[in-house]
Design a protein around this nucleic acid. Structure first.
Lengths: 191, 191
DNA sequence: CCGTAATCCTGACAGTGTAAAGATATGAGG
DNA sequence: CCTCATATCTTTACACTGTCAGGATTACGG
């Protein structure tokens, strides 16, 4: 009855899933490769063959996380009334992702452990950046406007993920969103 | 001729200095307590008596770093032409600190290792926040304006410290500062 | 001057990442 | 169907980490 086969079948995917669990529980700074292997029910040296070292696993996880990040933004943008609302919703999606998966958010934006020279990771990151540029250029904005929207969205998200912004934590969800919308609108061209 | 005395004299301060060196070289994620002890020329268990565990040392370092952070902002604000310029300079100081001491910046804003319930750390953080509130209220702004200025300043600083913003890296220092001034001005009340 | 407390060291333990070498299954070529 | 090279996984080993317990040394108040 399903005595463990020597070969896992799809260990790479299982390790990625286990790594994400490990990340959400222990955070980037408490991440343990051996613990990930244990979660996947495999020996501690098994991940090496698929990802090289810990950095390789975290790099793959970051690339995957980056696309999840962009998917969250995309999902928020559907149903936007106009291009301005679309850009604001992207910022709200930025925050939503940071609050829903703070550890993954930190891995992507505030960690030195993934290899950000990895082609896969670069591709995933570029997709998000190009999308942001598209949102702003549609509104007739330039690179200064891109900087404004990105920095403000990221600042709100990062500070919120780290529980640094007590102002936002105190508000109701509706008041919170209204406040953020206000702030994000200042970043858009022609405000 | 100065054979090492058994008692260091001011080991606590020496450990803090060594810890800051370790932090700038290895980053938060590569920080090693034993390595810090080695830097200070002391046994690996010596820090325990002064700081408890690694978290205690990083907490003390974060508190110290937070005041250095605020000092950087204060230094930038002197010579401001008016209150608006003062707020903008604070944002530039935010970035200056993040670029000059990225590891310390990460420890303060993007790490889970320090104990942010520590009274000393809370006090140091509150000083910075209260100062920010003062800057904005002087301009007649409310908490929404505080959020805007803080989030934008932090976003620029954090993304720059992580080398995520290629847009800013390409520009000359003068063009960079002009661009950031533009973005920060949008956050101030009555823009 | 003495003893108590503070300071620092040594030794030990479990846990970590990674490398080397051995075990097992897969799959292609004969 | 058989063989064997290869991919996959395990075992073993090593250096390093944080933390705890206990011993050594010094400083300091009585």
């Amino acid at each position: 009855m399903a005595e463990k086969p020597y070969h896992h079948g799809d260990l790479r995917a299982a390790l990625l899933a286990a790594a994400e669990d490990e990340l959400t529980e222990k955070g980037v700074e408490g991440f343990s490769l051996r613990s990930v292997a244990k979660r996947a029910g495999v020996s501690h040296a098994a991940p090496a063959h698929h990802f090289g070292d810990t950095g390789g696993l975290l790099t793959a996880l970051a690339a995957e996380g980056f696309t999840q990040f962009q998917d969250t933004l995309d999902a928020r943008e559907v149903g936007a009334t106009d291009a301005r609302d679309k850009a604001v919703r992207a910022g709200l999606g930025y925050l939503e992702f940071a609050l829903a998966r703070p550890a993954l958010f930190r891995l992507i934006f505030s960690s030195a452990r993934p290899d950000f020279a990895s082609p896969d990771l670069i591709a995933a990151a570029n997709r998000a950046y190009e999308h942001l540029v598209g949102l702003v250029t549609t509104l007739g904005g330039g690179e200064t406007d891109v900087l404004a929207l990105w920095a403000t969205s990221h600042g709100i998200a990062d500070l919120s993920a780290g529980h640094k912004m007590r102002t936002l934590q105190g508000k109701s969800p509706a008041a919170r969103e209204a406040m953020i919308r206000d702030v994000l609108l200042r970043c858009l061209p022609g405000a």
